[in-house]
């Protein structure tokens, strides 16, 4: 399998300076005003939970629910790792918003030609070998980027090496694994992290979709068979009725 990029956010190291927010807005050409919640103009934000600062952004799932939900394939898991959005395909159904287990995608409700907005992990920058803007801007190294397997190893090393950490890497199992990981010294549920299903989301609808050929074939043949029997019985009934009635010449 090809190696993909991933981001590790160490909540213990974040000082809430919001450099990542601003760098993100700079790179994506968005209004440079700090926002408290994810929005179409804030693709990553720092949320305050007590004295902890939690960065929110797209988790870039390994097998993303949004990409499986999108009927026109506007959302894609790219080979390098980022989950990207192609606005030129989007029809605005907003099923990705419904499907995302982390409730990340945002919609431009106020616009007359609205699109979905979410973090793209700076896919264009990463393709050129540059780090995502948010990671580059982080002064404390709370966010780091690297190859997913190495980043996951690093996260494990930190969590196992220091007793202060909660013994879980958020993103390692959530939604079947993501490309953004969080480690923390406070339980994740206290920091607003959702308990996402620990399985790849597309599998949930794949079973039902897999039934389609069977339903079409079995159902179709069954109906056709029933129709044949009905017709046959009708013919027999008509023929018998003809025999019973005396022939008129």
């Amino acid at each position: 399998m090809e190696r993909t990029r991933a981001i590790l956010v160490d909540i213990t190291k974040c000082i809430g300076c919001r450099s990542c927010e601003l760098a993100c807005k700079e790179v994506h050409g968005l209004l440079k005003e700090s926002e408290s919640k994810l929005s179409p103009t804030a693709l990553t934000v720092i949320e305050e939970h007590g004295d902890k600062y939690v960065r929110r952004m797209c988790m870039h799932c390994e097998d993303p629910a949004c990409a499986s939900a999108c009927l026109v394939g506007a959302l894609k898991k790219t080979a390098l790792g980022p989950v990207t959005y192609d606005g030129s395909k989007c029809i605005g159904c907003r099923y990705c918003l419904v499907a995302c287990p982390f409730s990340v995608p945002r919609y431009e409700w106020t616009k007359l030609v609205p699109y979905v907005k979410k973090c793209d992990m700076c896919a264009a920058r990463q393709a050129k070998g540059e780090p995502p803007a948010c990671v580059e801007a982080c002064p404390t190294g709370a966010s780091i980027v690297g190859w997913r397997d190495e980043i996951l190893e690093e996260a494990q090393r930190r969590v196992l090496g220091d007793a202060k950490y909660v013994k879980h890497i958020y993103g390692s199992e959530e939604a079947g694994g993501t490309s953004v990981f969080f480690i923390s010294d406070v339980p994740f549920e206290d920091l607003g992290f959702v308990a996402a299903p620990r399985q790849p989301m597309p599998a949930l609808s794949a079973a039902a979709l897999g039934d389609v050929p069977t339903v079409v074939l079995v159902g179709g043949s069954l109906l056709a068979g029933i129709y044949w029997i009905t017709e046959r019985r009708h013919h027999v009934a008509v023929a018998e009725a003809r025999e019973r009635t005396p022939k008129q010449r």
Binding site: S68, K89, A206, L209
Partner: peptide, 10 residues
């Protein structure tokens, strides 16, 4: 534009 993994596509 097809995405056969999508329930909404079907």
């Amino acid at each position: 534009m097809w995405n056969r993994h999508s329930m909404l596509f079907e």
